[in-house]
């Protein structure tokens, strides 16, 4: 795990930055304004959102919003776990969290590629 630490830190820092920039707007519009009826229904239609997501920049945004923040989240949660006395189980919890991040990143890359 120590050998992977620099790579994990790089993904962690990039994840915080990219997640902080991209996720609030996505959550606001698709998770709150859309379901509550504030955002126009035609703006959230399948054709329009599919068109946005399949645009090359849209694909990059989707991939960035999936593959990077998940590493930031996993690394943060690992350290919260350690702070609350979980050092002895870090050997299990850390790899599980990073495995979730790895699987989500790979699944995100495949999903965006196949979109």
């Amino acid at each position: 795990m120590l050998k992977l630490e620099p790579i994990i830190w790089l993904l962690f820092g990039a994840g915080m930055m990219v997640g902080g920039l991209l996720l609030p707007a996505i959550v606001l519009v698709l998770g709150i304004a859309g379901p509550l009826g504030f955002a126009p229904a035609e703006a959230l239609s399948y054709e329009r959102i599919h068109g946005l997501a399949t645009n090359p920049i849209g694909r990059l945004v989707c991939l960035g919003a999936i593959a990077l923040p998940v590493w930031g989240g996993a690394h943060h949660l690992r350290h919260v776990w350690i702070d609350f006395g979980g050092l002895k189980t870090d050997g299990l919890v850390g790899p599980v969290l990073y495995a979730v991040a790895l699987v989500t990143s790979v699944a995100g890359a495949v999903a965006v590629f196949q979109l």
Binding site: L23, V27, I66, G73, A101
Partner: peptide, 10 residues
């Protein structure tokens, strides 16, 4: 929120 919202985008 970072972790779950990423999975949500997925």
């Amino acid at each position: 929120f970072l972790l779950l919202s990423s999975i949500l985008v997925l």
